[in-house]
C-alpha cells in the first residue's frame, strides 16, 4: 500500500513528512462524513468507549444521550506521495473534550469548520478556538438536503468572520467538494504563511520569539 517501500529511510531527513488538518464543527454537522469522503482509509476512530457499542455513529437524534458515550477522534489519511502524508482529524463534538482539542491542534496545518446554517451557533466555539490560536481555517457550510441555502456572504456576516477567512458551500458527502474545502484550507495557510513572512520581521519586531528560523 502506501508505504510499501523498497528501502528503509536511513536518516531523519528522508523520513516522510506528516501533516494534519482538523475538521471541527458542531455535533452531527458531518465531520466524519467529510473525513470519509476524501480519506483513502475508512475513517478510523480511536479511544472509543466500549459503552458505545451498537449505537449508530452519526445519529443526530438524542444528542443529549450521546454526551455520555465517546471520547473519539475520527481520522482519515490522504497520501500525497510516499514522502508526504496528510492526516485529517475530526474533533470531538462535545464540549467536555476540549483537552483533546489542544492535542489535536498542536502542530496542525489548518482547520475546517463545518457549519450547518440551521445551527450556526454550534460553530462559534470552533471558530473562536482557531482564531485565538492563529490556526488558519476555512468555514465550509455543509448543504444539507432540505436546509435553506444561504449565500456565503450572509454566513460570513452571521459568523462575524474576518474578510480573509474563506467561506464556502460544500457537500460533505462528495469527494470533490470535500477535497476543495481542504484545498481552500491549505491555500489559506499558504497565504497566511506568506503574509507572516512578509510582514512578520519588519512589522512586529517586539514579538516574543524573534523569528521561527532565528
Amino acid at each position: 500500500m502506501v508505504f510499501g517501500r523498497s528501502k528503509r529511510a536511513r536518516s531523519a531527513a528522508a523520513d516522510p513528512v506528516t501533516l494534519k488538518i482538523l475538521v471541527a464543527g458542531g455535533f452531527g454537522v458531518g465531520k466524519t462524513t467529510l473525513v470519509g469522503a476524501v480519506s483513502e482509509i475508512r475513517p478510523l476512530r480511536t479511544e472509543e468507549a466500549l459503552t458505545e457499542a451498537g449505537r449508530p455513529v452519526d445519529s443526530t437524534e438524542g444528542v443529549e444521550t450521546k454526551s455520555t458515550t465517546t471520547v473519539a477522534m475520527d481520522f482519515g489519511r490522504i497520501t500525497i506521495h510516499d514522502r508526504l502524508v496528510l492526516y485529517l482529524f475530526g474533533t470531538p463534538g462535545q464540549d467536555r473534550f476540549w483537552f483533546l482539542w489542544d492535542e489535536l491542534a498542536h502542530g496542525a496545518l489548518g482547520a475546517v469548520v463545518l457549519a450547518d446554517t440551521r445551527r450556526l451557533a454550534d460553530s462559534f466555539a470552533a471558530i473562536d478556538y482557531f482564531e485565538r490560536r492563529g490556526i488558519p481555517f476555512t468555514v465550509a457550510v455543509n448543504c444539507f438536503d432540505g436546509a435553506q441555502q444561504h449565500p456565503v456572504e450572509t454566513v460570513r456576516e452571521a459568523l462575524d468572520l474576518d474578510g480573509e477567512v474563506p467561506v464556502m458551500l460544500c457537500d460533505a458527502r462528495q469527494r470533490e467538494s470535500a477535497r476543495d474545502v481542504l484545498i481552500s484550507v491549505v491555500e489559506h495557510a499558504l497565504h497566511t504563511s506568506a503574509q507572516a513572512a512578509a510582514t512578520g520581521p519588519a512589522a512586529e519586531p517586539a514579538e516574543r520569539s524573534p523569528s521561527t528560523t532565528g
Binding site: 476524501v38 506521495h81 496545518l109 477535497r179 481542504l182 499558504l190
Partner: peptide
C-alpha cells in the same frame, strides 16, 4: 510542502 499538498489534493 504546502504547494505539494495543494497539487496533490487537486490530483485526487
Amino acid at each position: 510542502i504546502l504547494r505539494e499538498v495543494i497539487n496533490g489534493l487537486r490530483a485526487l
